[in-house]
Design a protein around this nucleic acid. Structure first.
Lengths: 202, 202
DNA sequence: GAACTTTCGTACCGAACGGTACCGAAAGCG
DNA sequence: CGCTTTCGGTACCGTTCGGTACGAAAGTTC
C-alpha cells in the first residue's frame, strides 16, 4: 500500500518547501503583504516564480500558508500561554511572549499578525481580512480560557471574560506596534509588567 | 507691501486645497500608504494628477501633509489631553479619545498613525519612517508631561515617566489595531477603563 | 534504453504603478 | 487688446506588478 513513499513520479522538487516558507514568513513580516513583491519573496526563498506558483498556488495562498507557519513558529507562545493554570499566568505568558517575539534578534521587529496588513487597497483586502480573522480567533480563544477561569473560581464571578481577553489582546497588539516603532525588549517588558499589575483589572 | 494678497497672477486654483487634503487623509487612513494609488487619491480629492502634483509635490509629500492634517483634525485629542491637570486625567483623555477617534462613524476604523504604514517595501519606507517618528513624538510629549507630573508630586517620586508614557501609548496603539479588526466603541471603552484602573500602575 | 510525469528557468503577458510633457483655458497686468 | 503666468485635462513615459506559456532538465516506470 505504501509503495514509493519517498519517490513520487516526475522530477523531484529541488528545494525544501518548509524552508522556503520560513523565508517567505520573514519577507511578509518585514514588508507587509502589499510591500512584499513576488521578486522579493522568490529571491529570499531561493526559487523561481514558477516553482513558487507550483508549490503554493499564488501570492495570496502563500501568505495564508506563511501565516500558519508563523502561528506554529514565532507565535507559538500564544497557544502555549492558554495552557497555563491560572488566568494571571495565561495573561503573563501571553504578554511576555509577545514582548519576546516582537523583539527577537534576527527577526523583523513587531508581529506579522499585525503589520502584515492592517489597511490595504483592493488587491490586499483578502490578506487583510485573513489577519483580522487571525486576531479575532486569538481573542476568541483567550475569551474561552478566561470564561473557564470564571467558572473555576480563578476569576471573580462578576468578571467579564470578553473584556479581559480584549484588554490583554489590546496590550499585545500595542506591544507589536511599539516594537515596529523601534522600542526595545528592555523598554517593552516594563510595559507588559505594568499591564499585568493588579490582575484582574476588575 | 501686501499688494495682491488675494489675487496672485495667473489662473487661480480651481479647488480648495484643505478640502482636497481632507479627502486624501481618508484614503490613506483606509488603504494605507502603499494601498492608496494616485488614482484612488485624485478620484477622492476630485482633482487631476497634474493638479495634485502642482499643489502637493508628490505622493510622499501628500502623505506627510495628510498626516499633519490628521494630527490637527481627527487626532487633535492627543494635544488636548496633554493639557489636562493631572496625569490620570491626561491618560484618561488620551485613551478615551483614542477609542472615540478609532471608532468614529463616517471615518475609517483605526488610526492613520498606525495603519498608514507599519511594514512596507522600499517605495514605502519614507512613509513608514514618518509614522515611526510621529508615534515616537507622541510618546516623547507624554513622557515630558508625566515627568512634569512627577516633579509636581502628582505622580510618586519613584514613578518612571518613560514607562508610564509607553504603557499608555501601547494601549492606545492596541486600541487602534483592535478597531481596525472590527472592535466597536462599546467593546473598546471597557478596555480603556480597565487599562486606567489603579492608576498609576506602579 | 524509451515513455512518461513533474519541476525548473527563461522570457514574456497585460495591467497598474508613480510621474510628466504638452497644450489649451483662464485669470491679472500693461 | 496683447502678454504673461498659472491651472487643468489628455495622453503618454518607463518601470514594476502578479501571473503564465513553453521547452529543457531530471527523475521514475516499463
Amino acid at each position: 500500500m505504501d509503495t514509493n513513499r519517498k519517490a513520487p513520479i516526475g522530477r523531484p522538487r529541488g528545494f525544501d518547501v518548509d524552508e522556503a516558507l520560513e523565508r517567505a514568513v520573514v519577507v511578509f513580516w518585514e514588508r507587509g503583504y502589499e510591500g512584499a513583491s513576488l521578486t522579493d519573496l522568490t529571491d529570499a526563498m531561493g526559487i523561481t516564480r514558477t516553482s513558487m506558483y507550483a508549490a503554493f498556488g499564488n501570492k495570496e495562498e502563500l501568505f495564508r500558508k506563511a501565516l500558519e507557519r508563523y502561528t506554529e513558529g514565532p507565535a507559538a507562545y500564544g497557544a502555549r500561554a492558554l495552557e497555563e493554570p491560572t488566568s494571571e499566568a495565561v495573561a503573563t505568558a501571553l504578554l511576555n511572549g509577545s514582548v519576546r517575539a516582537a523583539t527577537r534578534p534576527g527577526f523583523p521587529a513587531g508581529c506579522l499578525g499585525v503589520q502584515g496588513s492592517l489597511a490595504a487597497g483592493d488587491p490586499g483586502r483578502a490578506a487583510r481580512d485573513a489577519l483580522i480573522d487571525w486576531r479575532n480567533v486569538g481573542w476568541s480563544r483567550l475569551d474561552e480560557r478566561f470564561q473557564r477561569a470564571v467558572d473555576e473560581g480563578d476569576l471573580p464571578p462578576h468578571a467579564d471574560a470578553g473584556v479581559l481577553a480584549r484588554y490583554v489582546m489590546t496590550v499585545a497588539n500595542g506591544i507589536a506596534v511599539q516594537a515596529a516603532s523601534g522600542a526595545t525588549r528592555e523598554q517593552l517588558q516594563p510595559v507588559a509588567d505594568a499591564a499585568l499589575r493588579n490582575w484582574p483589572p476588575v
